[in-house]
């Protein structure tokens, strides 16, 4: 499976409205719900917040990757959101996060999706990928970055 298949125009937002961590998670989950990838907003949110409790998924470098594994998820998918102002996500480096990847994985997931997700995670660690993501203005730019 190609990385681009994990993303969709329907699940991308270049201008997040949220101003804090709770809001941004809600906003991202909304996108996921509207695209029909999850059956139950609250159920999935619980999984995501539980993961955040362990330690913040704000990995620094302006990136946060909240994620959850739940039966409420129909199909493994990712929402991408960009916040111009930046949002405090209790990141490891204390800096606000600008790029958000909300990852939803069903309880029973096949390896194909998981492998694609792991590849995305790896790419995010590279400076040049992050730079392109910051600059991306369209879905095509965004996919191009990977």
């Amino acid at each position: 499976m190609e990385i681009r298949d994990m993303f969709s125009k329907e699940r991308i937002s270049f201008d997040l409205k949220a101003t804090n961590k709770a809001q941004v998670i809600d906003e991202l989950i909304d996108i996921l719900y509207k695209d029909g990838k999850i059956t139950d907003r609250e159920e999935f949110k619980k999984a995501v917040l539980k993961r955040e409790e362990e330690f913040s998924t704000g990995i620094g470098m302006g990136i946060a990757i909240p994620h959850g594994k739940s039966t409420a998820v129909k199909e493994a998918s990712i929402v991408f959101g960009k916040s111009k102002k930046g949002i405090d996500f209790n990141s490891m480096d204390g800096e606000p996060a600008h790029l958000f990847f909300l990852i939803a994985v069903p309880e029973e997931s096949d390896d194909v999706h998981l492998k694609a997700l792991s590849e995305i995670s790896r790419r995010l660690m590279h400076d040049e990928v992050r730079e392109k993501l910051y600059k991306a203005q369209s879905f095509e730019d965004f996919i191009e970055a990977f």
């Binding site: 993961r51 362990e54 998924t57 994620h67 997700l117 792991s118 995670s121 790896r122 660690m125 590279h126």
Partner: peptide, 18 residues
């Protein structure tokens, strides 16, 4: 990492790059 979805691989990549 506990969920084994993202951090496991990010850490791996970070170590490889470093």
């Amino acid at each position: 990492c506990p969920t084994g979805i993202a951090h496991t691989y990010m850490a791996a990549e970070a170590l490889q790059m470093a």
